[in-house]
Design a protein around this nucleic acid. Sequence first.
DNA 1: CAAGAAGCTTGTGTTTTGCAAGTAAAAATG
DNA 2: CATTTTTACTTGCAAAACACAAGCTTCTTG
Lengths: 101, 101
Amino acid sequence: MSCALDWFGDRWTLLVIRDLMLGATRFKDFAASPEGIPTNILSDRLARLVEGGLVEKVPAGPGGKRFIYQLTEKGRALKPVVLAIRDWGLAWEPGTKVLLP
Amino acid sequence: MSCALDWFGDRWTLLVIRDLMLGATRFKDFAASPEGIPTNILSDRLARLVEGGLVEKVPAGPGGKRFIYQLTEKGRALKPVVLAIRDWGLAWEPGTKVLLP
DNA sequence: CAAGAAGCTTGTGTTTTGCAAGTAAAAATG
DNA sequence: CATTTTTACTTGCAAAACACAAGCTTCTTG
């Protein structure tokens, strides 16, 4: 558990991963999330996730120099974690609603 | 998810909850965990967990003034989260071993 | 090709953390 | 019952992380 928390044991990383699961691919997608992650934190977290092999950058277009972010298999394997946290929040935090079906 | 992470979206809280699930009840039990949580952080996290209703303090003995910590139902409901994180770590972090069966 | 948007980076001040040390009360010991 | 030891914290301080705002290059688009 401690090793796992080295990667996502903070306030923002799991929200970025949730956004990726919901289909976010570009920098502004994450920045536009309702929680309002600061852009320097977002930069740092994306870089850490790429370094850890949970996320990969792939070219956005054929000849372009832009990239999109997407989960690797290692990152997608976090879906049970995200769902478990969501379910706990729905059950125990009053007034929460579902975003990820 | 964001509301849930308000409670345990940090480096230490989930490790404290894991220790509670493994049977830790007293301050020194948590402090003795292999990760070596600083005692001021431990104090703060226990207080936050009690405040949030995830953990309760109950008298340790009949006439004593000491307390033990134990999970409430709300806290025990985090077991799927803890297990999901453990499973991810076992699957994707090389060299990790199981502590919580 | 000018104007705007996307995708970051930098700077600054505040908050949180990690580590060491200290303290007061309870429990164990002689 | 006096003394030591353990327990359960709190305090102080340096270092790291964070939030917020601003700036700065590419890209796209009219």
